[in-house]
Simulated assay, not measured.
Amino acid sequence: MIQLMSVHFDHFIPNWRTQMEKIGHNVLVLVTEGKVRYDINGSEVVAERGELLYIPKSTRRSGENWAGTPHQKYTVLFNLDCELPTGVPFLDRKQFLRFRLAHFPYAQRRCERLYEEMRGSKSFRELICLGIVQELFGILSRELEKPEVTPMKMKYAQTVRQYLLEHYREPIEIGQLARLIRRSPNYTTALFKEVFGQSPIRYMHQLRVLEACNLLLNSDMTIASISQYLGYYDTSYFFRIFKKYSSMSPGEFIARGRPSDLSQLFS
């Protein structure tokens, strides 16, 4: 049984530091920007953006900004019923874990939603928060089952991903991405799927739809203008893509007007 205690969001806190102590709870840390240094049972651990740490109860732990530079992270504190197995392998082993998430953007949005829910007082808050935490445990457990990606493969995949993040509004073809890493188009697609769970082109469309959602809610641009801005010169095609990834039309999304729905676009 998981007992959620609290969720914290450290947003570039100057001189952040936590003293060495034997912690009386379990901790899940997702670093979203910068680096953070921990002492875990006498060993130095420097975690950076995209990495998740599981620090089990009774660990001797201290923490501080790495090299004096502030960082950003979500921290989830929780307890477990020690008498019963959870069915989550990394929790039941009760060992420190450090892992780089392939689906980091989605996990970050779920942590953001968890933090918002924990600070609110809406009905069924505890049920929703427990569901989000269980989902995060499931995502991590599933990724831990996969064969480890080699550093070179991760470097290639990150190179392609960074290019997509910077150029998603432009026309992009697989051959173009393949040339970035000097590999074949088939290899590039397979590699990206292995690391991020989807093809580069699908990821590009998701980035466009996410930006479309932001513009629909926070700008006075027309749907046709947004379509052109995002590189969809056929508005009807933009409508089809938007509905494919959001399960609703642009007009329906505007009518609902709930930014929290954005987390469902990347699953």
Rank of each mutant, 00 (worst) to 15 (best):
E83T: 13
L84P: 00
L84W: 02
G87V: 09
V88C: 11
P89A: 05
F90H: 01
L91S: 04
D92F: 05
Q95P: 01
Q95H: 06
F96Y: 12
F96K: 02
F96G: 04
L97K: 10
R98H: 11
R98K: 15
R100T: 14
L101C: 11
A102K: 02
A102C: 02
F104T: 07
F104W: 11
F104K: 02
P105E: 05
P105G: 03
R110F: 08
C111L: 10
E112N: 12
R113D: 13
R113H: 13
R113W: 11
L114H: 10
E116D: 11
E117D: 06
M118A: 10
R119P: 00
S121Y: 10
R125K: 15
L127D: 11
I128M: 12
C129A: 15
L130W: 04
L130P: 01
E135V: 11
L136N: 13
F137D: 08
G138R: 14
S141Q: 12
R142D: 15
L144N: 05
E145D: 14
E148S: 14
V149C: 10
V149G: 04
M152L: 15
K153H: 15
K153I: 06
M154W: 14
K155G: 05
A157F: 06
Q158R: 15
T159H: 09
R161I: 00
R161W: 01
R161G: 02
Q162C: 00
Y163I: 02
Y163V: 03
L165T: 03
L165G: 09
H167G: 05
E170R: 12
E173C: 05
E173K: 15
I174C: 10
G175A: 08
Q176H: 14
L177A: 07
L177I: 05
L177S: 09
A178W: 07
A178R: 07
R179N: 11
L180V: 03
R182A: 13
R182N: 13
R183M: 09
R183G: 06
N186W: 08
T188A: 13
T189E: 14
T189F: 00
T189N: 10
A190P: 00
L191D: 01
L191A: 00
